[in-house]
């Protein structure tokens, strides 16, 4: 992209929302959500399914008007879904949203035309985006012949064809393999660096959240924390030791043991107890000796991940990643 964002040094937040509330019947999906987004940052909404991520995405893109809440763009109050805001957003949906009967190039030109970009401006842009997405040699093929990865790349290219200031992505890498994940994020980080693009992402993947500058941790429609990834990680002291117990062990009893004998506060998930402590390497022998032989299936020591942070902040687990679930299903079948 060529045109830089000029207002980069403005002191006002690019986009801020206050007290967003929305309920479907008596189920409250947004419970007073507030946030403030700066120019040129990568801002993530992290939370498991059901935390209000999708509703937040729908609100940001104007697909849903929340029942309550105020919104400001460049410090000027705007109605949600206002044209001024919509024309500055680029949106990447989680679901497939290309026209499969049209070619890759036609999809891009159609996307540009929806934003009233004149053809003479849109055509060279489409060319460049197709090249960046490594789709230049397939530009005139109908999208129905494309693989899933190629379609995702084209979706991203289309969201950029009108040169938005703010890119909003809903679970951009859900279902992508590791290589495609890395590639997507390299592209996004390049755009932020080179053009000052502001990126908003909803995600439930810790490894995706790691790529964000700031994170809003979302639980039950509310922000439980909003900070940089490092600051969030610092909320957990030192290391995490996880003890995976064999199937016949009583997890509750073992947790009690850790509490009473070592004054630790273990968190339970599946068959695993995790404890957060400093100087973890010194603890490992003591903990291992506390269990009888065969009780432990594995012992792990690591730096706290965002999944740990999330568990600590909300007491809930971030949902398992999709490939893992898919794999399990395959095994069951």
């Amino acid at each position: 992209m060529t045109s830089p964002i000029l207002d980069r040094d403005s002191p006002l937040p690019l986009l801020s929302a206050q007290e967003l509330r929305h309920a479907y019947g008596d189920r409250e999906v947004l419970a007073g959500l507030s946030f403030s987004i700066e120019r040129g940052e990568v801002f993530g909404f992290l939370g498991p399914n059901g935390a209000g991520k999708t509703t937040t995405f729908h609100v940001l893109t104007g697909l849903l008007s929340p029942q309550q809440g105020t919104f400001a763009l460049d410090g000027v109050p705007v109605r949600l879904g206002d044209r001024r805001l919509r024309s500055r957003l680029g949106v990447v949906f989680q679901a497939q949203s290309l026209d499969l009967k049209l070619t890759a190039r036609e999809n891009l030109l159609l996307g540009a035309a929806l934003y009233a970009i004149p053809r003479r401006v849109a055509a060279p842009r489409a060319e460049r985006l197709l090249a960046q997405a490594e789709l230049a040699d397939r530009a005139d093929e109908p999208v129905s012949r494309f693989s899933g990865g190629m379609r995702r790349r084209l979706e991203l290219a289309r969201a950029l064809v009108h040169e938005p200031e703010i890119l909003v992505l809903d679970e951009p890498t859900a279902g992508l393999d590791e290589a495609a994940f890395q590639r997507t994020w390299r592209t996004l980080e390049g755009l932020v660096r080179e053009t000052g693009l502001t990126v908003l992402v909803t995600t439930h993947r810790p490894e995706e959240a790691e790529r964000c500058g700031r994170l809003l941790v979302l639980s039950h429609g509310k922000a439980v924390a909003c900070d940089t990834v490092d600051a969030l990680r610092r909320r957990l002291s030192g290391d995490v030791i996880s003890l995976e117990l064999s199937a016949e062990r009583d997890l509750e009893a073992d947790a009690r043991l850790l509490r009473e004998r070592f004054r630790l506060e273990p968190r339970l998930s599946d068959r695993t107890l995790s404890v957060e402590l400093t100087a973890g390497h010194e603890w490992i022998p003591r903990l291992v000796e506390a269990f009888p032989e065969g009780a432990l299936r594995s012992v792990g020591l690591r730096r706290p991940s965002l999944a740990d942070v999330f568990l600590k902040l909300t007491g809930r687990e971030l949902e398992r990643d999709e490939p893992a679930i898919a794999k399990k299903k395959k095994e069951a079948a």
Binding site: L63, R86, V91, F93, A95, Q96, S97, G111, A116, R158
Partner: peptide, 11 residues
């Protein structure tokens, strides 16, 4: 098929 979504978020 999702095609209307980009139309709905466009200005």
């Amino acid at each position: 098929a999702g095609f209307l979504l980009p139309v709905l978020v466009a200005p």
